[in-house]
């Protein structure tokens, strides 16, 4: 936030160049299966960025993010296949449904600290998964899930092939990063950091800690719901298996490994945690062993994550400079 039009430094230019190069990848003849992998990483990135608000910014150990993702995906799938809504029209509803669900389940547990919250959020993700398997009101299709979900149509253009989805998913990720960056640099973002640093002190200086914790959950869940819409229309088939506890662990790992509180770090974490095991697929079953070893080494030598959280910058007030 150094003025409205900051002069870009070399770091900024390098990141911009990297971003432009990345967005050109599908045009440069990248094979479809590789584009598919990037799409997958993009979905995880959006989810991890939304988890970052809760885990990275507010410091709440939440390991049930797949539950909110599931609510969004099923909201889209049901509205599309049963009610015949277009995918785009289901997006706000999926976000709202996930946000409402988060408000309901988080309200009674928001005061729990650290590992206690962690345990309850693990419970939530399991409850949702089992609920979906039980096919309530014949809506969720049980263990088989829902099929024949439509493709999104934007301004008359039907998004079908992996490169199309690449631009949809990564465009959404880019917009999310911008909005979350703004949110981070506001009284809301600061309030979450005060809560993370010292909840008692935050309450004592006038921050409504219970409300802001809940809001962090709701914002994170709304975005996970949006990601659910993208996922449902990308896969065309969803089932409870896609929203397991393991998915929550992966998201948790992305945020912690990347650098909780730092969006660039979270992005790097998504590439690392989702991308690397695929790249090393030729190692067959032993790849998970290498992956595990990498995690352990990471936690020993760089526990703060790839990109540790950065301090906010403020425009120097004229009187002070």
């Amino acid at each position: 936030m150094t003025g409205r039009f900051p002069l870009p430094g070399p770091g900024r230019i390098a990141w911009a160049a990297l971003a432009i190069l990345f967005f050109c990848l599908p045009l440069m003849g990248l094979p479809p299966n590789r584009v598919g992998l990037l799409n997958h990483i993009g979905l995880y990135a959006v989810l991890a960025l939304s988890l970052n608000v809760i885990l990275g910014q507010a410091g709440m150990f939440h390991m049930g993010h797949a539950a909110f993702f599931a609510v969004g995906a099923y909201a889209t799938a049901i509205l599309n296949t049963v009610c015949g809504w277009s995918i785009l029209a289901t997006l706000p509803v999926a976000g709202a449904a996930a946000g409402l669900f988060a408000a309901l389940v988080a309200a009674p547990i928001i005061h729990l600290r650290g590992d206690y919250l962690l345990l309850v959020t693990i419970g939530i993700v399991e409850i949702v998964r089992i609920f979906l398997i039980n096919d309530p009101f014949g809506l969720t299709g049980g263990a088989n899930g829902l099929i024949n979900i439509a493709r999104p149509v934007i301004l008359g253009f039907k998004i079908t092939r992996p490169p199309h989805f690449f631009y949809l998913i990564w465009g959404f990720a880019a917009v999310s990063m911008l909005l979350f960056h703004w949110l981070e640099n506001s009284r809301f973002g600061r309030a979450l950091n005060f809560i993370r640093e010292d909840t008692v002190a935050a309450e004592g200086v006038g921050v409504d800690t219970a409300r802001y914790k809940l809001m962090a959950f709701v914002i994170g869940a709304v975005w996970a719901g949006f990601a659910g819409t993208l996922y449902a229309s990308y896969m065309r088939t969803i089932s409870p298996g896609s929203f397991s506890f393991w998915e929550s662990v992966v998201l948790f790992m992305i945020v912690i490994l990347g650098g909780s509180g730092n969006q660039k770090g979270v992005l790097a974490g998504a590439f690392l945690v989702v991308g690397l095991p695929e790249v090393f697929r030729f190692l067959k079953d032993s790849r998970l062993m290498f992956f595990g070893a990498a995690l352990v080494l990471m936690m020993i030598f760089r526990p703060q994550g790839l990109f540790p959280p950065r301090r906010r910058t403020y425009a120097p007030p004229p009187e002070a400079s």
Binding site: R187, R190, A191, N193, F194, D198, A202, V205, V207
Partner: peptide
């Protein structure tokens, strides 16, 4: 009970 890892300015902003 300051927020020791945050800046002086941010502490006042709290």
């Amino acid at each position: 009970r300051l927020f020791p890892r945050l800046s002086v300015l941010e502490n006042v902003l709290s």
